[in-house]
Amino acid sequence: MAFKVIKPGMLALLQDLGRHGHQAIGVTTGGPMDELAFRWANALLDNDDNAQQLEITFGMLSLEAQANTSVALTGADLDASLNGKSLTPWQTYAVKKGDVLSFQQPVWGLRAYLAVKGGFQCEPTLGSIATVMREKIGGLTGKGDKLHKDDILPFQAYDQHQQRSVPRAAIPDYSQSDIPLVLGYQYRSFSDLQRAHFFSSDYKVSQNSDRMGYRLEGNAIQGDAKGIISEGIAYGSVQIPKDGQPIVLLRDRQTIGGYPKMGCVTRFGGALLAQKKPGDAIQFTPITVDQAEHERHLQMARLQQWR
C-alpha cells in the first residue's frame, strides 16, 4: 500500500512541520517551505497537522498508486494530472490502485504539496521525518535523501473519499511581490538612507537560492557594523553580507551566523518567497510584530474554523 516513484522529478522531499528542539546541537528544523499550503493539505483530509507529506519543487514527478487512497494537492500549480486528466490544486481527489499521478513544469508558483489520507508512513529521525539534504537527515531513508526512481512511499489504504476544496478567500495569491518583514534590533546599524534603499528597491531571486536561503540581487545595502558576534538564526532572518546583497534564511538555514540582519520575514512572507522562481522580483514591506501576529492568528483561525 504505497506510491511507487516512476519519475523522481527535480526535487521531491518528504516533510512534516519540522524537527524542533535540536538547534543547540546544530540541527536545523527543516519542514515545509510553504507552511500554509502544507497545513491546508492535511486539513482537507482531516489528517493531523503534522502528518507527513511530499513537497514537490518544480514538478517533473510521476507516481503510481499501489492501493486506493484520497489525496490533497495544495501550493503551486505544477500542471498535475491523474491518468492524463488535469487536476486543479487546493482540492482533494480519489486515487485508485494503478492510477498514475504526474506533475509537469510550473504554471504558477514553484512548490506543490501532496498529502494522502492518514499521511505517509516513514520512521522519524530525532522526532521528525523532515528531509534536510544538507545535514543528511530525515526522509524515506533517514539520511536526507530526495526521492529516487523506484522508491516506495507507504501509506494506509483508504476507500471512503470525500470531495473537498479550500475556500477561495483562503488561497494565497502567489503573484504577490510584497514580502512582509518585521524589523530586528540590528536594523539600527543601517543608516536611514540605506534602510530607505532597502525598502524601496526591487530585488530579483538569484539562481543561487535553495531551501537553506534565498539570495537576492539588486541594490546593495551597506551597514555601519563590519560584523557581529555569531548568534542564533531565526526563521526568515534577512542577512546583509559584505557584498550588500540580502539573503533570506529559510527552513534549512544554518543555526548560527554573524552577519547583520535587517529583520525577519514572517511565516506567510517566507511562504510567498518560497513560491518565487529565479528571476522573479520582490519588494520588502515593513510591518510591526502586532501586525505579523494578527495575520498569523487570522490564518490559523480560518483554518481551524474550516476544520
Rank of each mutant, 00 (worst) to 15 (best):
Asp77Cys: 12
Thr92Lys: 11
Ser81Leu: 04
Thr57Gly: 04
Arg39Gln: 13
Asn47Ser: 08
Gly75Ala: 12
Leu63Arg: 14
Ala72Trp: 09
Ser86Ile: 13
Leu63Ile: 12
Asn83Ile: 00
Leu61Thr: 03
Asp48Ser: 10
Ala76Tyr: 01
Leu78Ile: 07
Glu55Tyr: 11
Asn83Gln: 05
Leu78Thr: 06
Gly75Lys: 02
Gln52Asn: 10
Lys85Leu: 07
Asn50Ala: 14
Met60Ala: 14
Asn68Thr: 13
Ala65Thr: 13
Ala72Gln: 11
Asp49Ala: 15
Glu55His: 11
Trp90Val: 05
Ala65Lys: 08
Glu55Asn: 08
Arg39Gly: 09
Gln52Thr: 15
Thr88Val: 13
Ala43Thr: 14
Met60Asp: 10
Leu61His: 03
Phe58Met: 13
Pro89His: 10
Gly84Asp: 07
Asp48Met: 03
Asp48Leu: 05
Ala72Cys: 10
Ser70Lys: 10
Leu78Ser: 01
Phe58Gly: 00
Asp77Thr: 09
Ala72His: 07
Val71Glu: 01
Ala43Leu: 06
Gln52Leu: 05
Thr69Val: 13
Ala51Thr: 01
Asn42Thr: 13
Ala76Met: 06
Thr74Ala: 03
Ser81Phe: 02
Ala76Val: 06
Leu54Asn: 04
Lys85Phe: 02
Phe58Asn: 02
Ala43Ile: 00
Ser81Met: 07
Leu87Asp: 05
Ala76Gln: 08
Met60Asn: 13
Thr57Asn: 03
Ser86Thr: 15
Thr69Asn: 15
Trp90Tyr: 09
Asn50Val: 07
Ala67Ser: 15
Thr92Pro: 04
Asp79Phe: 00
Asn68Cys: 14
Glu55Trp: 06
Ala76Trp: 04
